[in-house]
Amino acid sequence: VNAKFPIRAQKFPAVFAVNINWFMSWPEAALVAVSSAFLGSYKIDCTDDDRQKLYSLTGAFQATVRDITEVYFARMRKHVYVTPKSFLCLIDFYKQLYQIKYEEINVQERSVNVGLQKLKEASEFVEKLKVQLKEQEVVLKAEEKKTTALLDKVMVEKSKADKKAEVVNGQKADCQAEADSINAEKAEAQVELDKALPFLHDAESACNSITKKDIVEIKANRKPLDIIKLTFDGLQILMCKKVVDVAPEERSINKVNATFLKDSYEDYSSKEVQDMNFLQGILDFAANEKDSINDETCELLGPYLRFDEDPAKHWGPFSHPVLDPSLAGKASGAAAGLCKFVGAMVQYHGAAKIVKPK
């Protein structure tokens, strides 16, 4: 014995105190039985025949590995031990791997099923669309015929409209020319109207110059002068009110006696003056009824207003107009205003009638 052997035995006691397990290797049938015991209650998605094949396959794996270890020992002179624990680990690993792969396959299966369902639905939808398309083709052809007919009709109507547009454009040009002519006439009429308006303003001013005091004075005058009476006659004629029948009568104006017309003061004018709205009635006439004055009215007022400085052309009985505001003013302020009013309204009519025919 080597002298170093005791020393090494003291240093490495485990080498000299080893228990050797003399159990024999499990036969393959025992391995299959163990596999069926551990996998029998495990849920596997397969038939019974496939399950039996699985039990046999696991046992065969363990036996094959054991045989390979013997070959390895014969070649490499090294022991590799395959124990029952290794077989149980193989079974547990199979369970874990099976669960993982089973879930992966389920996910893939669901994805494939969803895809197949979508493809089926798409196919059915396409078939429906084909049917609808055929139906729509029939409708489309009918609508196309209608559209073509309508288009032809529109073209015909457009041709008519174009012709009518030419006529309308011609009428438009005529209307524009007529409008231009009317505007020109309107401008001319406005010029004439502007000439007539001052007379209307004079009439309104003359009427506004009459005060209530002047009217009261006339009402109180029991024997008004002839010029006052004739002034009211002129107002009666202007406003188309009643007067007495025409008859000659001696009149005295500005201390000059002459034969003139009989007045209507006592019969009609004196009653008009008593009306409280006398002045307002005259203003309303100037505002609203001025255009009712006609040539006949002005002709009837001719003897009261006409005057010509040439004695050969003047046929009146006095050397002045009968309704002279300056002479009437000496008798009454109201008479002066009324004289101006009557004369201005007659002048307004003369200027305004130039405008009316246009």
Rank of each mutant, 00 (worst) to 15 (best):
K85T: 14
S159C: 11
N288D: 13
V154H: 07
M345P: 00
E144R: 10
S111T: 15
V167N: 03
R8E: 09
E217V: 04
H314I: 12
S159L: 14
I105A: 14
L327I: 15
E135K: 15
Q96S: 15
D49C: 02
Q190S: 14
H201R: 15
A287F: 06
S123H: 11
K213W: 03
L129E: 06
A196F: 08
C339M: 03
Q99F: 03
T211G: 02
V139E: 15
L54S: 05
A335T: 13
A352W: 06
L283V: 11
E144Q: 14
K356H: 06
L97K: 12
V355Y: 00
K4G: 09
G234L: 04
G234K: 00
A187C: 10
W22M: 10
M24W: 08
F5Q: 11
I253Y: 07
S41R: 09
V107G: 03
P84S: 06
E137S: 14
Q347K: 09
D284W: 06
L140W: 11
K53P: 02
E249P: 01
K271A: 11
F23C: 13
H320K: 08
I227T: 10
H320N: 08
A179I: 09
F93P: 01
N21V: 12
K186N: 14
V138W: 07
A161S: 10
L31I: 10
L57E: 03
A351D: 02
